[in-house]
Amino acid sequence: MTNIQRDKIDIPVTSFEEVILARQLVRELMERLGFSLLAQTRIVTAVSELARNMVVHAKDGRLTATKVTQGARVGVNCIFQDSGPGIEDIDQAMREGYSTTKSLGLGLGGAKKLCGEFNITSSMGKGTKIDITEWVK
């Protein structure tokens, strides 16, 4: 189930311990890819928000993080996928201050602000998939 390679991470995220593990693994991957400390901190913070969301709202969250390239550019791509209840109103969920649980209500919208590229698809009863990409500058 857990698969950790040099340029690819594929792990379940179903507990708060695994949120911490996800943070550590993504940070190590980004460090290897040559991201600045600031970029690492930004993306790992986003990973923390999104991974926590999966633990709180779904039971079978998974995180895959991989190295991506585009010409000479190198980046990291993280996909958060679960088959939880889904999000009814994505726009509302992305709005600042919106929270169904205990946090500062910046989870989803905040994560978006921290990432270069952010995509979300969700369908009720089927689950949510969030796809983020950040390039080394």
Binding site: L38, Q40, T41, T45, E96, L104, L106, G110, K113, L114
Partner: peptide, 14 residues
């Protein structure tokens, strides 16, 4: 508080 953490918090709007 570390500078990267501060910059992230500011960007987060927190």
């Amino acid at each position: 508080m570390r500078k990267e953490v501060v910059l992230t918090l500011v960007q987060l709007g927190l």
